[in-house]
Amino acid sequence: MSYYHVLIFFLAFSAISKCDDLPDFYTFTVQDIEGEEVSLEDYRGSVSLVVNVASLCGYTDSSYRALKRLQDILGYNQKFHVLAFPCNQFGEQEPYEDEVIHNFAKTNYAVEFPMFSKIDVIGENAHPAFKNLINQSSVHPDWNFYKYLVDHNGKVLKAWSTKTTVEEIFDSCKAALDSIPEEIISPEDSSTKFPQQSADQTIKDEL
């Protein structure tokens, strides 16, 4: 094997090892939108769609409605969660305090998925949990409603930009949910599992 091939192999192996050495998303602690400290370990064993949200964005209405429906469809056994992180870094379109943000989401969209305290998602003051999403995926959000799909082990599977609709990512979210080992899902959870065809058709029809 030539020196060139050895060098390429070493660099590739180093890149993979570096990725594997990254802490996973669930190792971090955040504040919920009511100011209480929350360990993301609470979500280990489940799939998460992490989204930076904003109240005054042109994508707010369609995104909140679709995310709410996605949670309703895939959250039937508490193994899928939309995790919403308000952020004011893009167009200053989330200027409100946490209480106002929470009331806005609940009143206008009946949001029940977890919401967290407003944070920075890019730059020097970005929250470590979001830095982890970026480091794992190599995708930097440049607007509101970026979406990061995190598996049951805290590893980022995919990331999508603002313009990618929830309908377009549904199959990936469903596949991640279906890949959770059965031993992680309790018998009670399995017995209430939504029929796949019904779930798929419902969300694609209504989004």
Rank of each mutant, 00 (worst) to 15 (best):
Y3S: 13
V6G: 11
L7E: 14
F9C: 12
F9W: 08
F9G: 10
F13T: 12
F13G: 08
A15M: 09
S17R: 12
C19E: 12
D24H: 08
Y26C: 04
T27H: 03
T27R: 06
F28N: 06
T29F: 00
T29C: 04
V30L: 05
D32I: 01
D32W: 00
D32S: 05
E34Q: 12
E34N: 13
E37D: 13
S39W: 01
R44E: 09
R44G: 04
R44I: 04
R44K: 15
G45F: 01
G45T: 02
S48W: 03
L49H: 09
V51K: 07
V51L: 07
N52T: 05
A54T: 02
S55W: 03
S55Y: 03
S55M: 05
Y59A: 13
Y59K: 07
D61R: 12
D61T: 11
S62D: 11
Y64H: 14
Y64W: 13
R65N: 14
R65W: 05
A66P: 02
R69K: 15
L70H: 09
Q71G: 14
F85R: 08
N88M: 03
Q89K: 06
G91R: 08
G91F: 03
G91L: 06
E92A: 14
Q93S: 11
E94N: 14
E94A: 14
P95M: 13
P95T: 10
E97L: 13
E97N: 13
D98S: 13
D98N: 15
V100K: 15
I101M: 11
I101G: 08
H102A: 13
N103E: 15
A105C: 15
A105M: 11
A105K: 10
E112G: 11
S117E: 12
I119R: 06
D120E: 08
D120I: 00
G123Q: 06
G123Y: 02
E124M: 09
A126N: 06
F130V: 03
N132R: 02
N135V: 00
Q136M: 07
S137R: 08
S137E: 06
S137A: 11
W143P: 12
N144W: 04
N144P: 07
N144A: 07
Y146M: 07
V150R: 11
V150W: 10
N153V: 01
L157N: 13
L157M: 15
K163D: 14
T164H: 02
T165M: 03
V166R: 03
E168Y: 04
E168W: 04
F170R: 08
K174C: 07
A175C: 05
A175W: 02
A175G: 06
D178P: 00
D178T: 00
S179C: 01
S179E: 10
P181Y: 03
E182C: 01
I185D: 02
I185H: 03
S186K: 07
S191R: 04
P195M: 04
P195S: 07
P195W: 02
S198I: 08
S198L: 09
I203N: 06
L207T: 08
